[in-house]
């Protein structure tokens, strides 16, 4: 019997992690214990930024990471984080459909085989003051942690402010930042109500976590076990997207229950945001080149 180590970045209670734990159990059951997978959640074995390379080098056999973390390697990995391009689960699913092949091809160059990907709940804007128009963001300190969030903040007239995860709680409670864009899940995890009051359900984008295995480790399995893994992966993908939708609903409710005012952005705000989205789509297409444009066209075609 074979045992795989599988590092994941998010805590045990996170729905992505729960889905992976279920996946590991499914694999063990389907293969009669021929293949067992030990899930090391919360970056406890390998930290998030190193997970991809650890799988690539064979230090661990499988792993999960946020796909857009690889944006600086190739802009294609970032397509799910272009603001206001795909703003619903349906659109995000389509976007994954048209970009999957290219993503798999790029990761295969690093000896990585894609098992599946699951979207996070859509991203909304948390603030201390309710947003009526885009001008209300002007001059606010807006948390940025990558080039998408920095550019978004700039285009919205806000002041992009870099805050690292360990400094997050302190930065908000001391007022070093007063706005952030993230999912309802993350908002609940950091107990956003301790320091923020409003949540604009902007559905800006649905980033994805991707689950990969080391190609050599996969090839070393018997064909039956390989098949069982792929089957369990297919189920996990379908289950994960369902879980994510459920998560959006329940976590948005949790935000409201804890006193955060959840609201739909006004027409005016929405228009300004979409305008920013168009600018950023164009900028992304430029970075991603011909291959990116092809994916974009395929997505916009249907």
């Amino acid at each position: 019997a074979e045992n795989w180590d599988m590092p994941t970045p998010y805590p045990e209670g996170n729905f992505h992690t729960q889905n992976i734990i279920q996946f590991a159990e499914d694999v063990e059951e389907a293969t009669d214990g021929e293949l067992t997978i030990t899930v090391h959640s919360n970056g406890s074995l390998i930290e998030h930024p190193e997970i991809k390379n650890a799988v690539r080098g064979g230090q661990v056999q499988a792993g999960e990471f946020l796909l857009s973390l690889l944006a600086n390697e190739n802009a294609i990995f970032q397509i799910d984080s272009v603001p206001f391009l795909a703003t619903s689960y349906e659109e995000a699913g389509k976007l994954w459909e048209v970009s999957r092949e290219k993503t798999e091809e790029l990761l295969a160059q690093q000896n990585l085989k894609v098992l599946y990907a699951v979207a996070w709940p859509p991203q909304g804007i948390y603030t201390t003051e309710k947003l009526q128009t885009i001008d209300d963001l002007s001059g606010t300190s807006f948390r940025s942690y990558n080039n998408t969030t920095e550019r978004l903040a700039q285009l919205a007239g806000a002041v992009p402010t870099q805050v690292e995860v360990p400094d997050l709680a302190q930065a908000f409670s001391t007022g070093r930042v007063d706005a952030m864009i993230t999912s309802p899940s993350t908002g609940v995890n950091v107990k956003a109500w301790d320091f923020l009051d409003y949540y604009a359900d902007t559905r800006a984008w649905l980033p994805k976590n991707i689950i990969v295995v080391n190609q050599d480790a996969f090839d070393a399995l018997s064909p039956e076990v390989q098949e069982a893994v792929m089957e369990a992966a297919g189920e996990a993908e379908a289950r994960g997207w369902e879980m994510s939708m459920e998560e959006t609903k329940t976590q948005t409710e949790v935000l409201a229950e804890n006193g955060i005012e959840v609201y739909e952005p006004s027409e005016e705000l929405r228009d300004s945001l979409l305008e920013i989205g168009e600018t950023m789509s164009a900028e992304w297409a430029e970075r991603a080149g011909e291959e990116g444009q092809k994916i974009l066209d395929a997505f916009l075609a249907n």
Binding site: G13, S173, V188, N189, V190, K191, D194
Partner: peptide, 19 residues
């Protein structure tokens, strides 16, 4: 406290409350 941050992230609890 670094360790309360690490713990807070692991259990998805509010870090300000832990502080």
């Amino acid at each position: 406290s670094i360790i309360l941050i690490v713990y807070g992230v692991a259990i998805e609890e509010s870090i300000s409350r832990l502080f």
